[in-house]
Design a protein around this nucleic acid. Sequence first.
RNA 1: UGUCCCAUGGUGUAAUGGUAACACAGCGGUUUUUGGUACCGUCGUUCAAGGUUCGAGUCCUUGUGGGACAACCA
Length: 695
Amino acid sequence: MVEKKSLNFIEQIIEEDLANGLDPKNLRFRFPPEPNGYLHIGHAASICLNFGLGEKYNAPVNLRFDDTNPAKEEQEYVDAIKRDVAWLGFKWDKELYSSDYFQQLYDWTVEIIKAGNAYVDLQSSEEIAKQKGTPTEPGVAGPYRDTPIDENLALFEKMKNGGFNEGEAILRAKIDMQHNNMHMRDPIMYRVLKKAHHRTGNDWVIYPMYDWTHGESDYLEQVTHSLCTLEFKSHRDLYEWYLAQVATTDNTQPKQREFARRNISYTVMSKRKLLQLVQENMVSGWDDPRMPTISGLRRRGYTPNSIRKFSEIAGISKRDNVTDVALLEFCIKDELNKTAPRVMAVLDPIKLIIDNYPADKEEILIAENNPEDETAGEREVPFSKELFIEREDFREQANKKFFRLKIGGEVRLKNAYIIKADSVEKDENGNITVVHCTADLDSRSGSGTEASQRRVKGTIHWVSSKHAVKTQVRLYDRLFKDEAPDSHKDIDFKQFINPNSLKTITALVEPSLLTSKPGDRFQFQRKGYFCADTNSTSNQLIFNRTVGLTDSWAKEEKKTAAPANDASYDTIIVLAGKHLKARNNDDRNSILSEIEPLATQVNKEVLATKLNDAIANKDVLAGLLTLKFTGITSPEEKAFIAKSLGMKNGSIKLEAINITITDAELLLENKTLLETILAEEKSPFIKEIIEKALT
RNA sequence: UGUCCCAUGGUGUAAUGGUAACACAGCGGUUUUUGGUACCGUCGUUCAAGGUUCGAGUCCUUGUGGGACAACCA
């Protein structure tokens, strides 16, 4: 049976071209990074698209560095990019550089000038920008637009020979200053940059711009489909215009098509912002395991397969998107579950003494390496009287939902004995220092005895005190607290940084890990997947947490521990998000009627902390919609209203204004604030409301 | 007050004029020497209004909402 897989819209375009006579042998793609930063998971989508297409159609894919700006580009980035693409498992056909085409581009340019389609402009960038107009107003011609061809040729020659300083002269294509598309209003082809280039050194002092390079590079390489992200859509006209200047009809005409960049929740995905995190030391570097860079994910413990799988199931489209990071995590958990050896590691140790086990006895127990993989084999784990177990796995008393160790209760020590807790020792502060227990000495795992077959509800992991190895463990969490930290126009994305994104602890692990090498991946049983860090050695083991295991006990605990009203407020936040997305008042009103009963249940103390933390639009709106029904009483709530009045989002501002003007006291307190808003407000609707209230 | 692009469950994507589906997340359960995995179940979707058509998520019109475009960046 043939499974028919649906095609994404890029594949459909290719199929169409093939159907229209394009020879599949001519198919060729390229991945064109600028070497000015590290590749991230968003680039991975593009890499997987292009190289995936190459594999699917058996077509070559070039790795071409788009290196036309010597000010920003460095060899370090070239090396990192090559390493990352290769690590993902892709093989490029040719390694190429746009800078290799500088001479060809120059020669073509001279022809374009001779054809009267380009001119040298000697104005300042401010003047040029001014003449360019805006997206809503057409541009006007500058004074150099009609310079005679001979003069342009001479001036361009002078540019090339260093006769102008940076900023004094540029070469422009002569297209149409009134064009709807700003990129067509006589775009810049060359600028003077007296900087050494990482490959061409000091050969050139003029450098071509992106548009006048990219399509021509595609053409020279005979790329058929030049795929890029959506923000280049409006460059397509120019791409085609330049191509028309140089292309001959017997050659393949490359085709630019655009797809949406891949965003992931709780992180940022722009090189500029990632660079900022690196430069401002908010992370340890481009390969910090919290970074969404390929190198960061690699150090975190992600595999090439998991990233390729993610790109495949996330898909390709033209819609703005924020993919749930849980999907990425699913991909790595799914793979590691099948491949990662299991080991025992205690992250937060508490001592356990088996009172009825001989003090000098040591046993070597057998443990399965991976229950999902029979070929993974077994290993030996030492056992003795004194062990460490996870602090959270013991409670003096607990209800019957807690099926770990408690006084008088039984639990299985993984791969070892069933034990029963008897008593505890405590320090002067009342903290438990030791748990005493009794083992059922007939119950050893794998011994085959009747007692060994006994079923107890809980199984916990452990390490032998004498044999335990101290290890540094880095527990990583999401870098940002907000789903889309850079989606808030008025708030800097760094405001959302999660202060607890890294917790470094000392853990105790079983001795088998002593032989682990950097990059080795393990499942620390019941805890998560961990990867030996680049700097891990047998003298100082270091493990990075890639991702935790699904923890249904934590969920259960959260349910009972959190105040009941939390759930109401969480629902209100979700509804507030919908309210922001709603496109008509009917929808908004029905959401309000859902919120009303919930709002009255919200715990005021919970609310106070939530209001204090609210930064994102939906969190602020949730607060407002709750207060709308509960009324404003505390100083915190009043402060929150004042803060909301300052938000730029229209729905939020309107809601805040409405709440303010229906409360006489609030109205009085915020009178000057409202007057300020009135002065700056553009919406006549909002102005009218404020004016009415103020009089 | 311009041009272009986009709009399908909470999220990401399918459905190519013919039964709105898959995955993740959520919720409930079964199994379990990992509260993992696996398995089963469950929740929930076509922005709006008109039009074309036997039939519209898909085509057309208008509207609404979101995004891109004014670097000597790519």
